[in-house]
Simulated assay, not measured.
Amino acid sequence: MAKTIISGFILFFLLIFSGAEPTSAAFWDTKGDNVIHDPSMIKEGNTWYTFGTGIGNGIRVIKSTDGKTWSPAPSIFTTPLSWWKKFVPNHEKNQWAPDISYYNGRYWLYYAVSAFGSNTSAIGLASTDRISSGNWRDDGLVTRTTTSNNYNAIDPELVIDKEGNPWLSFGSFWSGIKLTKLDKKTMKPTGKVYSIASRPSHGGAVEAPSITYKNGYYYLFVSFDKCCQGVNSTYKIAYGRSTKITGPYYDKSGKKMTEGGGTILDSGNDQWKGPGGADIVNGNIIVRHGYDALDNGAPKLLINDLYWDSKGWPRY
């Protein structure tokens, strides 16, 4: 793994030195138990862990020592928590799009409980001091939405700004992607909800935010269009950037992401259909799922080194 990352950086710097821009990034070619949806990845010690959507069996977890060959790890919350039913009745077995991050000495796992086509949703939080321990503390409800809201409390992601403050981005369809500041102790919202991306002319088809900071800009990655239809999925990854975490975010053409803007990074290929649910790891790795056309459309873990061009825009 270290050799792969180092070789990627060497290639990057050689290309920059020569005045060229990289046109592709190292593909990690995952194998083993790599079927997962909405992946979020982190490294603890010498082990990579990826967390993903669970339907009926808790939050799915897989692990790897090299980032390529994956095996199952114990799922989290295989028995529904009692408070889920209060906020999302009849759908408490759906744990979607978890996000794993490390902050202030703990690993924080945000996740959603919801159902397709509904914004009766809740974002929950669990935490641990060591992923490998398998001991997760239930930190309860973070935020929720009902049919009276014009946005959807799913697809959470913890973001740390350049000053070290925690924020939560989230959202799916309706009025789009939201952002709210978190309390450093409780890791729960403190007040205002900002709108940072929407697609009013595309039926609101934007979700799965991931924000990373690099060289003076916050980069917002999102998924456009529809997931979860195997090889017929139309998911694609788009991005924009802002000098402020709260936006406005602009794509490469200068269009605001709150007005439907977003530069496409990945729309798939002959084998990998509908890539999306992206997670940016350490600013130089992109993790997402794609539906494998060579395996009946199974959602599988895709990982690439992420490069940045001479103007600061991300690319493979």
Rank of each mutant, 00 (worst) to 15 (best):
residue 1 M to C: 08
residue 12 F to L: 11
residue 13 F to M: 11
residue 16 I to V: 13
residue 29 D to H: 12
residue 35 V to G: 00
residue 45 G to E: 14
residue 55 I to S: 15
residue 56 G to V: 10
residue 62 I to M: 04
residue 63 K to R: 14
residue 70 W to A: 08
residue 74 P to R: 03
residue 75 S to L: 00
residue 84 W to H: 10
residue 88 V to K: 13
residue 109 L to C: 11
residue 111 Y to H: 11
residue 115 A to D: 09
residue 121 S to R: 08
residue 122 A to T: 07
residue 123 I to Y: 00
residue 126 A to M: 13
residue 132 S to F: 01
residue 137 R to P: 03
residue 140 G to L: 05
residue 140 G to F: 06
residue 140 G to C: 03
residue 141 L to G: 05
residue 142 V to E: 02
residue 159 V to C: 06
residue 165 N to Q: 13
residue 169 S to V: 13
residue 169 S to H: 00
residue 171 G to T: 04
residue 171 G to H: 09
residue 171 G to D: 10
residue 176 G to A: 06
residue 177 I to L: 01
residue 185 K to V: 13
residue 188 K to Y: 11
residue 188 K to A: 00
residue 190 T to E: 11
residue 190 T to C: 03
residue 195 S to I: 06
residue 206 V to R: 00
residue 208 A to Y: 06
residue 209 P to I: 08
residue 223 S to N: 03
residue 223 S to H: 02
residue 243 T to G: 08
residue 247 G to V: 10
residue 248 P to D: 08
residue 250 Y to S: 02
residue 251 D to G: 02
residue 251 D to T: 05
residue 255 K to D: 12
residue 258 T to I: 07
residue 263 T to R: 07
residue 263 T to E: 12
residue 268 G to E: 00
residue 282 N to M: 12
residue 291 Y to S: 03
residue 294 L to C: 02
residue 297 G to L: 10
residue 306 L to E: 06
residue 310 S to C: 12
residue 310 S to G: 08
residue 312 G to D: 06
